[in-house]
Amino acid sequence: MTDRVRRLVVVGRDIPLWLSAIGLQSALGRADLEVRVVELPSYLQPTDALAAVPSIVALHRTLGISDAVLPRLCGAVPMVGQRFANWSGGAPPFVLGFDTEPPGDGDIPFAQYWAKGRLEGLRVPLEDFSLGSVAARQGRVPGLSDETSGPLNAGFGYHLEAGPYAAVLHRFGQQAGIPSTFTNGVTVEREGDRIVAVVTAEGERIEGDLFIDASGPDAVLSSPQHDDFEDWSRWLPCDRILTASAAQLPNPPAYSQVSAFAQGGSACIRSLGEPGSWPLSRPRISTNGALPNSCRR
């Protein structure tokens, strides 16, 4: 077949760049598809920490990335849930675990029975029936052993240091044989609606049959003629982020803390491990706090 895509070029930076290149190469490399990377300068700050939901574990397994190196190289610690504080008036914080709902009855979900229990005087919050939430509060990691088999199922994601994690992916991609070019910027060469090549600031011209834009908010491949950005800021008004890191907490939690501020905005606290530690000892803390102007009263 003649119009088959043979050359795939991923243009971008940091984690999205390498995850997409590795993913595509691993899924389609066997089918005679050549994946290339054009890498732009990183936007990551030393204080950037990520909270990744449990699908990252399955993704790594699919791609053949070993999680064993993550604690040492990226300060990874398991994230068992997310704790939301100050979001609902005077209500106490609640933890969202990553788990399946307790079994209900046929098509009637468990929460319906809990709601009935509340009407009849039950004082136990819903999250106490969540394996993930309870594990997160107790600093335990479900899914690492078989103890939690049964009708309840919970998993974990990671807190990761963003820069080192991007470096791990970068190295993995190179070991997988994905050719890459580093550049300070690209210009796009089009024929009508089609992109035919990108030209790096250093003058190299890279042709492709299909291009993937993983450049983050710059969207370097997007057509200047089509401004198809859909604005959702009327529902999600936060538009600035401040990151900082602080000393380790004495008893690091197994969850991300997401606190709402009275002035608007929220803070996320992600505990990281010390190099070599696993799973939850002596981490450092990194915070992302946001105080957008549009939210200030």
Binding site: M1, A27, R30, A31
Partner: peptide, 9 residues
Amino acid sequence: EHYHPLADA
């Protein structure tokens, strides 16, 4: 007109 490239693997 086309089948998935993986079928060529």
